[in-house]
Every structure is written in C-alpha cells, then in structure tokens.
Simulated scan of single mutants.
Amino acid sequence: MIRGRVRRSHADHASALAAEAEGYLLLRSHYDDARREAGELCAEMPWLTTAQAEDLAHHYCERRMLLARHMLRVTVQRADQLCQEYEIRYQELRRALLKRHAASASAVMACAAGVGAAVGVLTR
C-alpha cells in the first residue's frame, strides 16, 4: 500500500511539474509574440525615439500578458465547469444504467423462478 501511495505521489508531482512547465512555455510563447508585435508596431512609427519605442513596447507587452493570463484563467475556469457538468451527467447516466440492470436482473430472476415453479408442478 505504501508503495502505491509513493508512486501515486511521484506521478502527481510529475504531472504537476509537467503542467507548470507547459504553462511557462505557453506564457513564454505569448510573451515572444507580444515582443515581436511590439517591435513591428514601433517599426511602423519611425518618429518615436528609442526610449519612446522601448516604453511603448514595454507597455504593449505588459497589456498583452495581462490579457493572455486573463484568457487562460477564463479557459481554465470553463474547463473546470465543463468537467463538473460532465461528471454530474456521468453520475446520472451511471445511476440510470444501474437501475436498468437491477430491473433486468429482477425480471430474469422472476422468470427463472416462474419456470422453476412450472417445471416443479409439471413433474409431480
């Protein structure tokens, strides 16, 4: 039992680490895109001084990262909501299936008892 818990703990830790790395890489990709877009925007404004262009690029990237984080939070919240909805629906379907199987098993047992009684009466 302890080994199973240790393995599960390592698997959970590895999964959390992988999710964290994936999140970092995703945000880094958004940041790189924002820097590229900020550079393109500043290139279209040749009248900006170097300091102004850097300031504009900094603010643009900051806003883009806030937007990306917000969108990711909304996506995670929606995924959690869908997961809960699917779990509720799964439980409902599972209960309905169990009821049907219980009813079917009861019907089969009733039929078997009826046949057994009929055979017992006929063999007397």
Results as ranks from 00 to 15, higher is better:
residue 81 Q to W: 02
residue 27 L to P: 03
residue 93 L to F: 04
residue 69 R to I: 11
residue 29 S to P: 02
residue 81 Q to G: 00
residue 123 T to A: 00
residue 87 E to P: 03
residue 13 H to V: 13
residue 108 V to H: 09
residue 41 L to C: 06
residue 54 E to D: 15
residue 42 C to E: 00
residue 118 A to E: 00
residue 9 S to W: 07
residue 42 C to L: 02
residue 82 L to F: 08
residue 12 D to H: 02
residue 51 A to N: 02
residue 26 L to M: 06
residue 84 Q to A: 10
residue 75 T to V: 12
residue 27 L to T: 04
residue 7 R to I: 09
residue 62 E to L: 14
residue 10 H to M: 08
residue 26 L to V: 13
residue 15 S to G: 10
residue 88 I to V: 15
residue 64 R to Y: 02
residue 60 Y to F: 04
residue 4 G to Y: 00
residue 76 V to Y: 05
residue 16 A to I: 08
residue 106 S to F: 03
residue 50 T to Q: 12
residue 67 L to N: 12
residue 63 R to M: 13
residue 72 L to I: 14
residue 87 E to T: 14
residue 35 R to P: 02
residue 69 R to Y: 02
residue 117 A to M: 08
residue 100 R to F: 02
residue 1 M to L: 11
residue 107 A to Q: 00
residue 59 H to R: 15
residue 7 R to T: 07
residue 60 Y to C: 01
residue 91 Q to C: 15
residue 31 Y to T: 15
residue 116 G to Y: 03
residue 76 V to L: 12
residue 32 D to H: 04
residue 32 D to Q: 10
residue 24 Y to M: 14
residue 43 A to S: 09
residue 25 L to H: 01
residue 58 H to I: 01
residue 17 L to P: 14
residue 17 L to A: 13
residue 57 A to Y: 05
residue 39 G to Q: 10
residue 114 G to I: 01
residue 20 E to T: 10
residue 62 E to G: 13
residue 60 Y to G: 06
residue 52 Q to A: 10
residue 17 L to V: 00
residue 109 M to C: 06
residue 36 R to C: 11
residue 42 C to K: 01
residue 113 A to T: 04
residue 21 A to T: 11
residue 51 A to T: 03
residue 93 L to H: 09
residue 113 A to K: 14
residue 106 S to H: 09
residue 122 L to P: 05
residue 74 V to I: 05
residue 17 L to R: 07
residue 14 A to H: 13
residue 75 T to R: 13
residue 101 H to N: 15
residue 78 R to V: 12
residue 18 A to C: 07
residue 74 V to H: 12
residue 3 R to C: 15
residue 7 R to G: 09
residue 124 R to K: 13
residue 23 G to V: 07
residue 59 H to I: 06
residue 73 R to V: 11
residue 102 A to D: 01
residue 89 R to Q: 14
residue 18 A to P: 03
residue 20 E to R: 14
residue 87 E to L: 09
residue 87 E to A: 07
residue 12 D to P: 14
residue 104 S to H: 00
residue 66 L to N: 05
residue 98 L to W: 08
residue 75 T to I: 09
residue 34 A to E: 03
residue 28 R to G: 08
residue 85 E to C: 01
residue 79 A to D: 01
residue 10 H to C: 06
residue 96 A to T: 07
residue 100 R to C: 15
residue 9 S to N: 09
residue 16 A to P: 10
residue 91 Q to P: 12
residue 19 A to V: 12
residue 75 T to P: 15
residue 77 Q to R: 13
residue 26 L to W: 07
residue 90 Y to G: 12
residue 19 A to R: 07
residue 17 L to M: 08
residue 4 G to K: 12
residue 82 L to W: 03
residue 124 R to A: 00
residue 60 Y to I: 10
residue 117 A to G: 09
residue 90 Y to N: 12
residue 45 M to R: 03
residue 120 G to Y: 10
residue 86 Y to H: 07
residue 123 T to H: 00
residue 103 A to T: 08
residue 36 R to M: 01
residue 75 T to H: 15
residue 9 S to K: 14
residue 118 A to W: 02
residue 119 V to M: 00
residue 85 E to Q: 11
residue 66 L to M: 10
residue 122 L to D: 02
